[in-house]
Design a protein around this nucleic acid. Sequence first.
DNA 1: CACGGGATCGTCT
DNA 2: GACGATCCCGTGT
Length: 202
Amino acid sequence: MNRLPEDFYLRTDVLQVSRALLGKVLVTQFEGVHTAGLITEVEAYRAPDDRACHAWNNRRTNRTEVMFREGGTAYIYLCYGIHHLFNVVTGPEGTAHAILVRAVEPLEGIEIMLQRRKAPLPESRLTTGPGALSQALGLTTAWTGQSLLLPDTPVWIEDRGRLVSDTDIAAGPRIGVDYAGECAAWEWRFWLRDSAFVSRKK
DNA sequence: CACGGGATCGTCT
DNA sequence: GACGATCCCGTGT
């Protein structure tokens, strides 16, 4: 296991970290069950200037407090009362930057994922979409604030040597942030261009 | 394939 | 009291 180190997350440019996250492997292990998926699609959110960010204008609330923590922390919140959306906090403590993981390619524990999701599902839809992948990997809001760095955490991210070059990465506007004014046009969504495991076609 | 609606609840006004 | 960084299913084409 080659868990990403603190330095990976502490970089100040959340867009750079977002790109670097593509091709890494998101792993969960709890109650004796192991699942893993290769990260294929992400979105960056960045306070204070980004209106689409929950912590826009550096707004601190009970929910957003986690976003201000040190990079390498999980930020998970409930969306539409149903979906648990998983984010990775980046940057030093005091800045509210986070990366939403929108899709992964299933690697390990696929039978478990099918059970957690609504089987039967085609594998192409098992973990594509932020709510879908969280359900497949067993990620819930119970883990918001959880470290990805400490030993024996239930969730972490690994580097397994998959090489991703800039030409492998496509960028476009983020999904579902039309309310965010001009920020909605920022191309802060990144995905592996050739992956079949992306939440929506371009 | 495109579109529309319902589910469901924590969070903030 | 309104609404959301979503998803699934039904309907119509």
